[in-house]
Amino acid sequence: MNDKPKKQYDIAAIMNENINVMRDVVPWANETRFRVTKVEKGHVFGVQPWEDHLVGDPETGVIHGGVITTFLDNLCGMACSAAMTEMRFVATIDLRIDYMRPAEKGRDIIGEAECYHLTRTVCFTRAWAYHETRDKLIATAAGTFAINKARFGGTRPKPEVPQT
């Protein structure tokens, strides 16, 4: 038995302190220009600004659905990390998006994601995108995420070489 208790971290608080770093290390998130505004335990908020280069319908100036998918996928993934007590990376297993109404031209989209259940291997999330309140939704998402094995910086610890 391992008698040393596993160290517990408040990942949500660490994420909140590094809120701008989280986007900067993701090139595609930099391209779509969304911002994370608040991280709480298992809950993440963000803003997706309207931008010319994200328009999916030149006649109406509405942002492309793929931008909302990127935004909600990322927020859901962060909500998983924010629900944990040890730093782990997650990978999307599947994601479902329902489009309720088009986003309005020139307006910011607010996003909110929640990790509502966590097992040792899988996180269950849902997310919302809207302009003002959740009563008038642009889109909703439901996603499941696989929790990656503990690693540091993407590399496994080196195995000990037995001395002969």
Binding site: P27, G65, G66, T69
Partner: peptide
């Protein structure tokens, strides 16, 4: 393109970029 990356540590494409491409 470099901007399509979602995870710089493992150099994986961003799921959102792939989803956008598939939706289009």
């Amino acid at each position: 393109q470099e901007k399509l990356i979602g995870n710089v540590a493992i150099r994986a494409l961003h799921g959102g970029a792939i989803a956008s491409f598939l939706e289009l």
